[in-house]
């Protein structure tokens, strides 16, 4: 079983890209286009300029890790509205909880699709329950033993950031 550092970068890049594209295409009917920086050196931190909704789901098994999906608040609201068939007014009335749940589910599906590909490559894992972070003045830092990869996508003019943190598990 290879260690994480022995797995080529392209495997993670392709796996995350496929997961994001599949979820947004199937559930939202929108293509997710990897932005140019993904081909260069990935950024090593996520800087937030505006309020964001961040969904996170972990995976536990041969590889342990977490994926954070960063969406600006308007993008998160748009996604929730589309997914639930609700107008902006209905969504505003329903409150943040509904948006949080929708972003949690999008993250769950994305990490699930990512994890299923890893499992089929011989790295079986299980998913954890989703959670949500909201705000603009926070940063997520990995511990020193974890590896980090950050990928960005353009989805209909909005930016989706996928922050992947991993370390070898069981």
């Amino acid at each position: 079983m290879p260690a994480i550092q022995d797995i080529p970068e392209t495997v993670f890049q392709d796996t995350v890209t496929k997961a994001v594209q599949e979820v947004f295409s199937t559930m939202m009917g929108r293509p997710a286009v990897p932005v140019a920086s993904i081909r260069g050196t990935p950024p090593d931190s996520v800087e937030l300029e505006h309020p964001h909704v961040v969904g996170t789901v972990g995976f536990i098994g041969v590889i342990n890790g977490l994926i954070y999906l960063y969406l600006s608040v308007p993008f998160a609201q748009e996604c929730a509205g589309h997914l639930l068939g609700m107008s902006p007014e209905e969504l505003a009335e329903a409150g943040d909880e509904v948006v949080n749940d929708a972003i949690g589910e999008i993250t769950n599906m994305t990490v699930g699709t990512f994890k299923n590909q890893l499992s089929d490559r011989g790295f079986p894992c299980r998913l954890t329950i989703p959670s949500i972070l909201r705000g603009s003045r926070f940063s997520i830092e990995p511990i020193s033993s974890a590896t980090r990869r950050i990928y960005r996508f353009d989805i209909g003019g909005h930016t989706l950031t996928a922050d992947l943190l991993m370390q070898t598990g069981e």
């Binding site: 699930g112 699709t113 089929d120 079986p124």
Partner: peptide, 8 residues
């Protein structure tokens, strides 16, 4: 479910 690996 999101659990779609072959083994699962």
């Amino acid at each position: 479910t999101a659990e779609g690996g072959k083994d699962n």
